[in-house]
Design a protein around this nucleic acid. Sequence first.
DNA 1: TCATGACTAACTGTT
DNA 2: TTAGTCATGA
Length: 827
Amino acid sequence: MLLESLTPAQREAVTHVDGPVLILAGPGSGKTRVVTHRVAYLVEQGVAPGQILALTFTNKAAEEMSARVARLLPGASVWMSTFHRFAARLLRDYAPLVGLDENFTIYDAQDSRHVLKRVLDELDLDTPHVAPERVAAAISRAKNDLVTAEEYAARPGNPTGRIVAKVYPAYQRRLLSSSAVDFDDLLLHVAQLLRNHPEIRQTLDARYRYIMVDEYQDTNRAQYVILRALSHDYPNLAATGDPDQSIYGWRGADLNNILEFEVDFPEVHIVRLERNYRSTKRILRVADALIVNNVRRKHKDLYTQNDEGAPVRMVAYRTHKEEAESIAAQIVHQVQSGRRRPRDFAVFYRINALSRALEDAFHEQGIPYQIVHGQEFYQRKEIKDVLAYAQLVNNPRDDVALERIINMPTRGIGKKTVDRLSDHAGRHGLPLLEAARQAGMIEGLSSRAAVSVARFVATIDRIGEVAHDAVEAVLGTVLSESGYREMLTDSQTEEDQNRLANIEELLTAAREFDTQHPDDGTLESFLEQVCLVNETDDWEVETDKVTLMTMHAAKGLEFPVVYIIATEEGIIPHERSQKDPLQLEEERRLLFVAMTRSAHELQLSRAVYRNFRGQRRRAIASSFLMELPRQEMEIVEAFFGTTWESGTDDYRRGDDDRSDQFGDGGFGDASIDDGAFDVDQTPLNERTARQRGGAGGRSGGRTANVSSTASTTSSADDRARITTAAALVDAANEEDPPALPSDKSRTTAGTAGRTAGTRATPAIKPVPTEVFVQGMAVVHPEHGLGKIVALSGEGDRRKATVAFVTAGERKFVLAKSPLRPAGEQRH
DNA sequence: TCATGACTAACTGTT
DNA sequence: TTAGTCATGA
């Protein structure tokens, strides 16, 4: 019955139990279905769930699969995770073998950049300015290719290579001495571990007898080696992939891994899934017309028995703002008409920076949305600061964490002082924290500085005392002991208030973690989780919101309606990929991936003017657009016959623009006709135009003055309709509070719903436990005035540590305590 | 020796 | 737009 719902080809893939299998799966061919069903099938056939390992590239994919497997196999615990998370877990067990402590820290890109810069500074290279980016990329690439620091040093190549050969080993030494790894190290260390310790390899190979890899075309050398090592004695490797969807070449993904699978596993069984169950015929034909332009590919026939469908829309807007507003308006319209729900829509873009205009437009029109952003939340300064305290406590050798927080909030410990500490540490081979302990003995350090440093060390030690408490309590202690909370509460700026809200959110995340891991919830595992998430963890399939994300993040997903914005030269294909034909092909694949996410409707759009680095610049249609079959498409120029009033417009900046754009008094063909668009005016976007016209004064002189000549009727009516629609969207969403971001410095859209309710409930007894928040002033009938230092637990079991002015620190079970907030809570 | 404010250069994608 | 650097004043 498990197999009933599958097609013959899918069934073939699912029921292939022993021996290697390669599943070549085109977009929309039911690949995820195959993987999840295969897991279920294996278990049904008697394979222990613990022997199955499913690896993906993104957390999102891993979660999606877990969820689906859980539906097929309630209760079974199959390990599904990203490569990196899997590697991190393994490394915890074998850390000493690769020169790390068990409690090693995982540095994110920012942290490792910091280390790299320090190394570059210290090495005193003769070349004055090497772009750290460049070096970082080279090191990362080397690691992905499994070239170690020593090996790299042995064979310097180009000029950058020469520098890298010096820097890489120093960088690596530094990481190890901090007992830290960067993302690439996770894979590198594991690959080496498996290579150098045959007995471990054997154990793990036997433990993970059935391995499944998703997106095999995106594996790099390190991942490949890990997979091979774990599939030696038990070569039950099931790889799924599609060469046409390889979009991570820049990260070392090696297409040969999939193209040569048959060479690596001669006895491989190959299954092809070429029938598409997702998209309309039209969408598929358009996408196919694009991808056939790639030279480096194996021909594949995609077909579908779905409907013909609507033509793919190709729209040229005047500005990025109109693009965003039009998309928002279209969504509102469709939701309002009852045809679709917000969750049916997705908007994809090549680079994250392009999301802003969309956010503004969605916000304005009251459309609930979620942004799937790489790491946003955990990259915020305040979050990283707070976590750095925890990291330092967890791993006292973590120099990056120490440098980050030693003067945050400011304690009068400046650069000079840190340099001296660093010197001392270097000379004696100590971690910075150890050096700081000896501050009193370091010459050249003023006594004032020494006192500050000693105070800092004491702070860390106090936090260290509670390191084994619940994570939320640890973070709470960080906030109060470090003075971080005080610093923010003292400040009146809105920015700092937002930071506080974000920190509150972090505490909520910690609380959730504590609840989920009542026994095994160590600080260390929390930090690991936090380091390896990207925000996609908060991408909830279930909620009813429009999804905004990069094309890369879109891989593996599908939506009824897809908008792809900014199909402009330099954006997609990205300017840095234009020169290299191979990279250009990857860009084409990327667009192909984006297009094939869509089931029913697809719109590609571009803007003639787009803000770029704060400046407005002209954009040319992407060359990819010219490869698309126009007979399958509806070509729209959403210019509404508007004209520009010369003199008031703002588009005139930018030196090379002047010549061609205003001669015709509007946006005639001369300035934009690049062959990709017909002049075919469709009032697709009338309402938006009017709305913009109506609100024209809003942005003051920065916006061009637009007078609409074509669409002048019933704008009031339309606006009313839009408002109503927005209200409907809100109403539809009521049970699930819409996470409408309030402004730019909001907490992230995806997580806003999680924010603790700090504003509820005036104090009537009994005081609900959620009223109490970190740092709050409280009154106790006996002990008097105090302040909440730390919180942990949930519901009735929620506990608070309170520091009283006179009575010292005490712990309470909130539900049973007579504590109440001090003074009236405003808000 | 630090903190602060002005200035400048950079900005792909993911773990 | 923003993070990071630099110069200046306390």
